[in-house]
Amino acid sequence: MLEITIFSLLNGTVYGLLLFMLSSGLTLIFSMMGILNFAHASFYMLGAYFGYTISSHIGFWPGLIFAPLIVGVMGALLERYALRHVHKHGHVAELIFTFGLAFLLEELTQFFWGTDQQAYKGPSLLDFPLFTLFDANFPAYKAFMLLISIGIFLGLLLVLTRTRVGLIIQAAITHPNMVNMLGHNVPFVFMATFGVGTALAGLAGTIAGPVMGTYPGMAHDLGSIVFVVVVFGGLGSLAGALVASLMIGIIQTFAVGLNYSVSDFLVTIGVSFPADHFLHDIWTMTLPQVAPLIPYLMLILILIFRPMGLFGTRET
C-alpha cells in the first residue's frame, strides 16, 4: 500500500505538472483573447512529432530546444493569419475554427508520419533508474520531466509577476484597450502570448512523447483532459490550473493503481449479487476502469455547481 501511495504520488505529480504545462498556455490564451483553443493539445502532439523527427536525425537535446520553437512559431503565425481573421465572425466561429483545426492537424500528422506509433526515445543519458523503492524503479527521465515542469512553472510565475513584460501581459488581459492607448502593440502581445502558449504545449509534447507515446490520437486523448483542467481550475486562473492539474493527475494515477471494484466494497458490507445479474457490469466496475471517467464527472459537477471554476472570477 505504501509503495502504491508513494509511486502514485510521484507519477501523479509528473502527469499533473505535464497537464499544467499545457493548461497554463491554454488558460493564458483564454484570459487574454477569450478563445478556448480546441487545438491546443494538437500543438502538444506536434511537439512530440517534431521532437521525434529531430531526435532521430541530430539527437534528443537539440529536439528539446528546436521542436517547441517551431511549434511556437507555427502557433504565432496561426494567430496572426487565421485566428485574427476568424475573430471577426465571433466567438462561436472561433471555437468551431479551433475544433476544425484540431481535426485537420490530426489528419496532417497522419499524412506526414503515418498512423503507427513512433519509436520516440528519451536521451540515453537519462536512461537509468534514479532510485529503487520496494523493488520498483523510478526512471531518471521522469525526474527530469518533473524538473523541467517545475522550472517552467517558476519561470512563468517570475515573468508574469516580476518583469515589465509580465506587467503588460497582465494589463492586456483585463484592459486591452487601455494598454493599447498607452502605446503598447496589443495585437503583437496577443500573437506573442499565443506563440508562447503553443510553444509550452510543444515543449510538453517533446518531453512527454517518449513516456506517453507518440501517436496520432495523443492530442485527442489529452485534449479533453486539458479542457477539464482549465475549466475546473477556473478559466483564466493560473493558480487554478496548477491546482486542478495536480488534482486530476494524482486522482487519475491513484485510480489506475488501486484495483478495487464496487462488488469488493459490497462484499465487505455483506451484500453480493449473482454473476448473471442484469446490472453485473456495474457491480464489477473497477477503479482503473472508472479512472478515465473521473475528469469528465468533475467537469460536469463543477459546471453545474460553480461555473466559474475553483479559482475563477468570471463565467465563460
Partner: peptide
C-alpha cells in the same frame, strides 16, 4: 447557460457517455 459553458458541458457529457 449558452456559450462556452454549454459547449463544455456537452463535451463533458459526451466524453462521459463514450467512456461509459
Amino acid at each position: 447557460r449558452a456559450g462556452t459553458v454549454f459547449a463544455m458541458i456537452s463535451l463533458g457529457v459526451a466524453e462521459l457517455i463514450a467512456a461509459l
